[in-house]
């Protein structure tokens, strides 16, 4: 890790989303600053497709370098990483990604809980985890693990979500550090570590 990174409070933002989350990302991404000192890691439920067109699409929406993750890719600040379809995404202590095709969790692979829990174990209090729109309750247990490890947790405001169920079920279970709509998410990410 680069020297200036050490003093930054937050090293990674893991964003988990399901049905209705893409429209939020398409609103947020074009408004992000072109240089950030955290890594943004996206874990989205999506139908399996062999191609990687979602990461291509996302990369047209942001100045930040965007990549669909290959196994053992390093996690670098200022980059956007997208979990590949049909793999769980784990985070190694030495800040590399690992992929895993074990059983689906919450009927999902990638599962948001799996990545939140793994990121919590690696990043502890230097992690932000964010839960967006969706219609199942994946992500709730993961946010709890992030919180327990000292991380910062955010839910999309259910009133602004196409599918409020997923952020609402997390909000019902624990105290969020913030509940934000798209505008709030943009401001939060653009001013992180300032």
């Amino acid at each position: 890790m680069e020297e200036n990174n050490v003093k930054n409070r937050y090293k990674a933002i893991v964003i988990g989303g399901s049905a209705g989350s893409l429209s939020v990302l398409f609103e947020v991404f074009p408004a992000l600053k072109p240089v950030l000192d955290v890594a943004i890691i996206l874990v989205l439920h999506r139908k399996y497709s062999g191609d990687s067109s979602l990461s291509d699409l996302l990369s047209t929406k942001t100045f930040l370098p965007t990549k669909e993750i290959d196994d053992k890719d390093p996690i670098l600040p200022g980059h956007v990483y997208l979990a590949p379809a049909d793999y769980h995404l784990l985070i190694e202590k030495n800040h590399f990604f690992s992929l895993d095709i074990s059983e689906k969790i919450n009927y999902s692979r990638p599962s948001l809980d799996v990545t939140f829990e793994s990121a919590a174990d690696t990043f502890g209090s230097s992690l932000v985890a964010m839960l967006l729109s969706g219609s199942n309750n994946d992500g709730t247990a993961g946010l709890k693990a992030v919180k327990d490890a000292g991380g910062f947790i955010i839910a999309q405001n259910p009133e602004s979500a196409q599918m409020p169920y997923m952020p609402q079920s997390a909000i019902n279970k624990m105290d969020m550090d913030l509940i934000l709509d798209s505008r709030g998410i943009i401001d939060f990410i653009n001013t992180i570590n300032q």
Binding site: L90, E92, K93, S98, D100, S102, V114, E117, S118, D121
Partner: peptide, 9 residues
């Protein structure tokens, strides 16, 4: 082995 995966298992 990948530590993250082993630990989870």
């Amino acid at each position: 082995y990948s530590k993250a995966s082993l630990k989870r298992r």
